[in-house]
């Protein structure tokens, strides 16, 4: 499973960091940064949560 983020869409809410702190971080402006674009299986639930919660619809999960 691969995670894609669309940085120009990001609104810096940080909801993804709350949902999956090992996978997402924010830069100084709050914009999403990926820590791991191929998250471990035990992180998948958190990533799905982040996809669902992102108020900018800026995160996608891609099955490989």
């Amino acid at each position: 499973m691969r995670v894609e983020v669309d940085q120009p869409r990001c609104v810096a809410s940080g909801q993804c960091v709350l949902a999956a702190p090992e996978v997402f971080d924010q830069d100084d402006d709050g914009i999403v940064e990926m820590l791991a674009d191929h998250p471990e299986p035990d992180q998948h639930d958190g990533v799905r949560e982040a996809v669902a919660i992102c108020p900018a619809a800026a995160i996608r999960l891609v099955r490989e």
Partner: peptide, 13 residues
Amino acid sequence: PYFWSDQYDTRIQ
């Protein structure tokens, strides 16, 4: 609850 608003170049959270 959380909200944000963008006004000009200012982001409110």
